[in-house]
Structure formats: C-alpha cells, structure tokens
Simulated scan of single mutants.
Amino acid sequence: MRITATVRQESTRRDVAVETDGRRTDLALPAVNGGELLASALATCFVNDLFREAPAHDVTVDAVRVTVEAQFGGRGEPARALSYSVHVESGDDPVRVAALVRATDAVAEVHNTLRPALPVTLTDVRIGSA
C-alpha cells in the first residue's frame, strides 16, 4: 500500500490531499500543527484498526473514542512521550473487548512505525455499553 500526503499553504489557505494506492481524498484542514496531526494520525489508525480487527475476534464495536496525548519539548525537539486511552462501547463481554483492544494495540501500523524510536503507550481501556 502506498500512501502520500500533499500540503500546499498560502497566506490564507491550506490545501491538503491524501492518496492511498491511487484513491485521492481532499481534506478541509484548518491551521493545525504537526504534533496535532501526529496525535490525530495515531487516534485514527487505532480506530480504523479496531473496527478492522473486531470481526476476527468476534466482537461487535458500537463506538470507540481514542484520546492521544503527545508531550513535546522545546523548538526542534522530538516528542518525549506518546500515550493514548481507548473507550469502547460494546454489548459484548468486556474481557473479550479488552482483549480486542490489546490485540489492536499490537498491530496498529502507525503506532508500530513510531515505536522503534519512542514508546507509544496504551494507558487506559474503558469498556461500556452503547
């Protein structure tokens, strides 16, 4: 799978386009910084992967909320910490849902891309019904 992202910035306008294997999507993206986009990428990756992995674990997911926190230092310094919490709404057995969350954490591609340089830590899992 080949993914590209292109950002064109003018003084009053930002155009963003992403593409996966030739399928292009234009995004309306307000002025945000790279750290915010990194946190959004981690959250989006986990949400997508959780829904992808759920059928293999025979778990129904009604909704999921992922909150990512990135700690950055001064100008030019890399992130010092990346962590995230997950809240899954599901009527299935909470033990099975929690196992799904842990399995998804192990295969989340964006997380695993960053992990060789910096830990990406799952700090909290909450399971509730819809």
Rank of each mutant, 00 (worst) to 15 (best):
P94H: 11
L50K: 05
V32A: 15
H57P: 03
V61T: 08
S85P: 06
P119I: 02
G34F: 02
V107W: 05
V125R: 10
V110E: 14
A130T: 10
V120D: 08
T67M: 08
D92A: 02
V66Y: 09
G73T: 03
P116E: 00
A41P: 04
D15M: 09
V68W: 06
A98M: 07
T6H: 11
V86H: 10
R75V: 11
G91Q: 12
V101F: 06
A54W: 01
H111P: 01
G22P: 04
R23G: 01
V120T: 10
L122C: 02
I127Q: 12
D26H: 07
R13W: 09
D124R: 15
V110H: 13
T123Y: 06
P30S: 15
R8H: 12
I3F: 08
A98P: 07
G73E: 12
I3W: 02
V66L: 08
V68G: 11
R14I: 14
F51C: 07
C45F: 01
L122A: 09
V107D: 09
A43Q: 10
D92V: 01
R52W: 02
L82P: 03
L38C: 09
D21Q: 04
S90G: 03
Q71G: 07
L82R: 02
P119E: 08
A108F: 01
F51S: 00
T60P: 03
A108T: 15
S83C: 04
A98W: 04
V97F: 06
R65H: 10
V97E: 07
T12A: 14
A56L: 10
A31Q: 14
S85G: 15
L42F: 05
P116L: 00
V66R: 11
V97K: 08
D62A: 09
S85F: 03
G34M: 12
T6F: 03
A43R: 04
V59E: 09
L82F: 06
A31C: 05
N48A: 13
R126G: 14
E10M: 05
L37S: 12
E77N: 03
V88C: 03
R2Y: 06
R52V: 05
A43D: 11
G91C: 06
F72H: 12
E77Y: 01
L114G: 08
A103K: 14
H111T: 13
V88M: 03
L100K: 10
P119R: 01
V16L: 14
L122S: 08
E53D: 10
R65Y: 01
R23F: 00
A28N: 13
Q9V: 10
D62S: 09
N48G: 13
A98F: 03
S40T: 12
R24Y: 01
V120Y: 02
D26E: 15
E53G: 00
R96N: 04
A98Y: 03
T20H: 08
T44P: 02
H57V: 03
D58I: 00
T113H: 05
R96Q: 11
L82A: 04
D58P: 00
G74H: 00
N48F: 02
L42C: 12
R24F: 01
L82S: 01
